[in-house]
Amino acid sequence: MFNKMLSSIGIGNTKIDAQLDKQSYMAGETVRGKILVTGGKVEQEVDQIYLSVNTKYVKESDDKRFNVNVIMDKFKIAESFTIQPGESKEIPFSFILSPQTPLTIRDKNVWIDTGLDIKKAVDPGDIDYIQVNPSQLVNAVLKAVDSLGFKLIEVESKEVHRSFGKLPFVQEFEFKPRSGQYKGLLDEIELIFLPSEDQVEILMQIDRKARGLSGLFAEAMDQDESYVRFTVTNSDSSTVQETIQEIVNQNIH
């Protein structure tokens, strides 16, 4: 009876440890691993084992900014079972990391939360941060922008009030011209990637540098910004730099 009471407050309870095959993935890749379950001091009934993919984004309210955690996906790994005192179970798992998973270029902002549901006890959990790299197509776009003389300044996930999918945020990539033909002509460009299985839709904001009184007036009226929406596919990966350059050139003046 005393051991059951301790388990109900998390002392001597069942423990879990999620072990991933690796720590670095591309968005859209399959994540594989195993969950080790170790029984505590008393027999316990486990209702389910679940994995969730989590991230965070910035929300603004009343001129204040704060981070919000969000579950992107949740997967049920195992049905109910009984774990005996000291018993060990090993449960393999696999799931596909959503193509919309934010990239971890500047921040550890994606983690996998593993949990057990146990009646009348504290539910044990385990958190593992992972690195999320761009897909080959998104990487081709990032390299193309870099080759055009832009430097990546900031990457941030921000709340959106219109739907770009099932998620309440988008990840913005801000670039400033460091060299080349756009230095002195543009203040910055911002990119948002909306990837799917074999293509990426791109939202681009082009911010022109103010030149003279007319330029300052346009900047004050937010008329110095252009917004472009276009799509690149896997077959476009070799020509994506030319595509982006053409779009930027069309929106400089």
Rank of each mutant, 00 (worst) to 15 (best):
I112G: 00
V37F: 04
K119F: 11
V42Q: 11
A27I: 03
R178C: 03
L148V: 10
D198G: 09
I130R: 11
K176F: 04
V160D: 00
V31T: 07
S52N: 13
G39C: 07
A220V: 13
E90T: 15
F169Y: 12
E174R: 11
V46Y: 11
M72K: 01
D224Y: 10
F175Q: 02
L116Q: 02
Q181W: 06
T231P: 01
M72S: 01
I11G: 02
A27D: 01
Q48N: 15
F93N: 02
K15E: 11
K89N: 10
I153S: 02
G184W: 10
N13F: 02
R178A: 14
G184N: 12
V53G: 00
Q23D: 02
M1T: 08
L51V: 13
G39S: 09
N234C: 06
A220H: 11
Q245R: 15
Q171C: 00
E87Q: 15
Q245L: 14
V155W: 05
S237Y: 06
T233Y: 14
S237W: 08
K183C: 04
V53N: 03
S238V: 14
K89S: 07
S237K: 03
V160T: 15
F93H: 02
A18H: 08
I49P: 03
K15I: 04
S237T: 07
S157H: 09
L116N: 07
V122R: 10
T55P: 08
S61T: 02
A140G: 06
G86F: 07
F230R: 05
D187C: 06
V170M: 07
L6R: 01
D128F: 00
P92V: 15
D128N: 10
D222P: 02
L116R: 03
W111V: 08
V248N: 10
K158P: 07
R229T: 12
I96R: 15
S196W: 07
Q241K: 15
Q136R: 03
T243N: 10
D113P: 05
F217K: 14
M1I: 10
Y227S: 00
V248R: 07
T114Y: 06
I189L: 13
V155R: 01
E87V: 11
S214W: 15
H253P: 13
I189E: 08
I83A: 01
S226L: 08
I202Q: 00
V42N: 12
N3L: 15
P177H: 11
D73C: 04
T55F: 00
G86W: 09
E190M: 09
F169E: 03
I35F: 10
G12R: 05
L152C: 01
K22G: 06
D126R: 03
T82W: 09
Q250C: 01
